[in-house]
């Protein structure tokens, strides 16, 4: 997936800064102010995006520490006791989530990139090969993989309305459900 937020945001900032804002009449104070705020918000998004996942994971860890500390609290009244039991139940679920979130999104992206590169190198390695059978097996596997992946690439971009027959392309949520 080549169209990622970092490129989208940079392009939006440039369009607003170089083209749109200079064209806003200085007399239109509200439009000028809001255009500047949009640029500011986009800069903020660009800064936040790379750390957003880590930020949430960091907070979950801190919440878990506190929840663990509170789980040993002994209370007699029914309402606090019920609330603590619910907190403890949530803590157990959250611990599993935190464990599953040890990796970084950037690692996932890097792994995708590495495997793509290796598969491309494999294709290139057959350029001068006389082993047609092996080459065709590689091609068959990559065609099948690409067919499924490209459908998802197209579905992700469906809102851009490139597709001549949009109904033929499922929505991305249904394709990612499994």
């Amino acid at each position: 997936m080549q169209m990622r937020p970092e490129v989208q945001i940079a392009a939006m900032i440039k369009a607003l800064t170089d083209v749109v804002i200079p064209a806003v009449p200085p007399s239109n104070k509200l439009a000028s102010e809001q255009a500047q705020l949009v640029v500011g918000m986009l800069h903020l998004m660009a800064a936040q995006l790379p750390v957003q996942f880590r930020f949430d994971r960091d907070e979950l860890g801190r919440l878990l520490e506190t929840a663990s500390e509170l789980s040993s609290l002994a209370v007699a009244e029914e309402a606090p006791r019920a609330a603590l039991a619910e907190l403890d139940r949530q803590r157990t679920e959250a611990m599993a989530v935190l464990e599953a979130c040890r990796g970084e999104p950037a690692q996932l992206q890097a792994s995708v990139a590495s495997l793509r590169t290796s598969m491309c190198s494999l294709v290139d390695s057959f350029a001068a090969s006389e082993d047609v059978v092996a080459r065709e097996r590689v091609e068959t596997a990559l065609f099948a993989m690409s067919k499924a992946q490209l459908l998802r690439d197209r579905a992700l971009m469906k809102p851009q309305r490139w597709e001549p027959d949009p109904a033929a392309v499922p929505d991305i949520t249904s394709l990612l459900a499994g």
Partner: peptide, 13 residues
């Protein structure tokens, strides 16, 4: 750049 970034989206198709 906003237009060329937009055009990336047709690549998959």
């Amino acid at each position: 750049d906003i237009l060329v970034a937009w055009l990336i989206g047709i690549g998959g198709m």
